[in-house]
């Protein structure tokens, strides 16, 4: 179902939900490199906009309160909990989700490292873990030793407990970067 309130060059990013009410706000942002315009009510959270309106369901909801990290995306290059920010706050922002990591069918080095090190089990926290990894590896203020990595990644809970393999994957990706 198309909604004429949204103008996106990419059919895949057309929202499904046609509902509108009086106080919708128009937001234009860059999502995984593509311009997207959304018209949403103010209380639509970025996470729900991605998942329920733009079919970008790779970003997961685990707690909806910034307490688990499953919803981590990059906002202007930095990791952030997409569950604790409103879609309307991101006019002009550049947002990257897990769907934006691989390029031209080639896995991102972080994705390759997670595959090789079995850095997951159920896979549900994995997008968040990887987005935090990408952000961390680009942030030279964060130390590269294991203790610094574990501290910096502690906002991403893995209930399966695949932490050891995630650490291996992170450090392996760092070495290849």
């Amino acid at each position: 179902m198309m909604d004429d309130s949204v103008h996106s060059p990419d059919d895949a990013l057309q929202p499904r939900d046609a509902s509108r009410s009086s106080n919708t706000v128009t937001v234009s942002l860059t999502l995984n490199g593509e311009p997207v315009t959304l018209e949403v009510e103010p209380n639509v959270v970025l996470l729900d906009a991605l998942r329920e309106r733009l079919d970008l369901t790779g970003t997961k909801k685990g707690c909806d309160h910034g307490q688990c990290g499953a919803c981590t995306v990059l906002i202007d290059g930095h990791s952030a909990n997409s569950c604790l920010t409103l879609a309307v706050m991101h006019e002009g922002c550049e947002i990257t989700t897990v769907e934006g990591l691989a390029r031209d069918g080639q896995l991102h080095p972080v994705q390759e490292a997670f595959l090789e090190h079995d850095a997951y089990q159920c896979g549900y926290c994995t997008a968040g873990q990887m987005m935090s990894t990408v952000s961390m590896l680009n942030d030279k203020r964060i130390g590269s030793d294991d203790a610094s990595v574990k501290e910096a990644m502690s906002g991403n809970i893995c209930r399966c407990g695949a932490y050891k393999n995630i650490l291996s994957a992170v450090q392996s990706a760092r070495a290849k970067a």
């Binding site: 079919d55 970008l56 369901t57 997961k60 896995l107 997008a127």
Partner: peptide, 25 residues
Amino acid sequence: TTRIDGELKLTGKADYAADHNLPGQ
């Protein structure tokens, strides 16, 4: 053996229950 479903999980394409958005939902 690395997981055969690994790439789907790592690219966000693995379809968990709440990832299904059905017409008219």
